[in-house]
Amino acid sequence: MSTVTFKIWRGDKESGKLVDYTTEASEGMVVLDVVHKIQATQANDMACRWNCKAGKCGSCSAEINGKPSLMCMTRLDMIPIDKPVTIQPMRAFPSIRDLVTDVSWNFRVKKKIKQFKPRPPDAPDGTWRMQQEDVDRVQEFRKCIECFLCQDVCHVLRDHHKHEEFIGPRYLVYTAALEMHPLDTEDRIPELKEAHGIGYCNITKCCTKVCPEHITITDNAIIPLKERVVDDFYDPLGWLWKILRPKG
């Protein structure tokens, strides 16, 4: 048992402040346990999201001592607790209350991305054949738990508020998963360049660093997509080929 002090942001759309809570912590506790304990004993009305408590649902995203993290996967022995621990909501999204932010923008963005469109089935029974090595990379992207920590840390969204022009790392990973899906036949490259603003990403890799699923967002998803955009739009030979290739 040790005593910990948490400075938790309490407030709403209009205003808010950090409030100190002191409580006892026991071995193995994670940040979310402490927040729950404070909620049950000192602040029944403190708002926070959570579901699985095992890093699988991506609900309890927050900024712990300024670092975008899942509260359920941050053990107290991973952070200094000899001084107060600061818990704040994600900064890239508008506040609703306390640790809960309005992440609805993410759901709207996803809807704008063209959905999966498979090729006709490979076998007469309506099924497909794919090799494991061909789906490994897509499976990496599909590990995403939609915690939106990558969106939170991305300076294009966080500092420059380009929410209308840039879909953010999460949806670049989502697009990559569709584009590299062995069965998919859709083309999402033109809108990546224009409406989805892939050019805004200047590959600082902050998103990769905070991903709790350890998806190599920048190297495996964003850079290959940027290359496809370049191939489609800026490669002079490819361009010429598109004009000259036999039609029909």
Binding site: F116, T127, M130, Q131, Q139, H181, D184
Partner: peptide
């Protein structure tokens, strides 16, 4: 299960490329 694959699910594969 097959329907989920048609909607984009990516299951682990057998050597023959089946689910």
């Amino acid at each position: 299960v097959h329907e989920l694959e048609a909607w984009g699910a990516v299951f682990d594969r057998t050597k023959e490329g089946k689910i």
